[in-house]
Design a protein around this nucleic acid. Structure first.
Length: 265
DNA sequence: AAAGCGTGCAACCGCTCGGAT
DNA sequence: TATCCGAGCGGTTGCACGCTT
């Protein structure tokens, strides 16, 4: 995009911004937008924008994030949290890509969840959210705990697809130092972050850690192509997971890995 | 009761991508 | 092939609301 184009566009944007409404949507605008989409279908955002005196972007966003009939609202469930954590560990901040595997959830909602909950926890642990320590803490403490919590009770009729006992033989897999003080680890580190130096004792059973944690038997390609969606369920609130015990465990893990980093350095 | 503060979420902004011409 | 333009994406901001002091 050249400078002239930028200039002309910004001019146009200034002009548009004088004509278009901004800020919260009124009930009337929502109704108009819904009616327009019902009649003409979605995707013609600039046409609908002219009717509503909003920008096309604004219309699209309002529809996708709020008015779409299949939008799920309310708390992110435990299984959704697992999915988000798992997929984020693979793809990073690819919110829309992650959202495609959470039916009814929007990229905006997932992004907000990550920023308000996950980053908050990283701060409270004095970890950088992108640090190996925090990623490992998520993987070895948070995710196993989430999986534990969605274990079906005997009377549950629709068990989740995740089998915690298979994925995590020990509810909180212990990490070890290579110097042997805490035991030694063997097994494939391919299941872990490539940056991770921590390894697990039981490579086969722990294959689920990291890359395969969401759904056993699902291959990466299927996920990438959106051929499958991950099961939803649960309903526990996020906050309950962050009890003192988990915070303590994660803090220990962060400390532990810090020590290991120093040792390896 | 009210002021201050923190949190969560809706909406905006700037940029990139990709299809149409 | 080059250009244009709409759609989509990720980052950021602003506001409403609830909680604390």
């Amino acid at each position: 995009m050249d400078v002239n184009m930028k200039k002309s566009r910004s001019k146009e944007e200034v002009q548009n911004s004088e004509d278009t409404r901004k800020g919260p949507w009124s009930v009337e605008e929502d109704t108009l937008l819904q009616n327009y989409v019902a009649t003409h279908g979605d995707g013609r955002w600039n046409s609908v924008a002219r009717c509503l005196k909003r920008s096309g972007k604004s219309c699209r966003l309002r529809w996708l994030n709020y008015l779409r009939p299949d939008v799920r609202r309310g708390n992110i469930t435990l299984q959704e949290q697992i999915t988000i954590l798992d997929l984020h560990s693979r793809w990073g901040n690819r919110w829309s890509k992650i959202a495609r595997h959470l039916p009814g959830r929007t990229d905006n909602e997932i992004k907000n969840y990550w920023r308000t909950r996950v980053i908050k926890q990283a701060r409270s642990l004095k970890c950088d959210v992108d640090s190996k320590q925090f990623k490992d803490a998520l993987r070895y403490v948070w995710m196993p705990r989430l999986i534990e919590r969605i274990q079906p009770s005997p009377e549950t009729h629709d068990p989740p697809h995740v089998s915690p006992s298979k994925l995590y033989p020990n509810p909180t897999p212990l990490l070890h130092h290579q110097n042997g003080l805490h035991g030694s680890c063997s097994g494939s580190s391919s299941a872990l972050d490539s940056s991770s130096s921590a390894k697990l004792e039981t490579p086969l059973e722990c294959e689920g850690l990291g890359h395969n944690v969401s759904v056993s038997g699902v291959c990466e390609r299927d996920l990438e192509q959106g051929n499958i969606t991950l099961p939803l369920g649960g309903g526990d609130s996020m906050e309950s997971l962050w009890d003192d015990q988990n915070l303590w465990l994660m803090q220990q893990l962060c400390d532990d890995l810090e020590i290991q980093d120093n040792f390896l350095a």
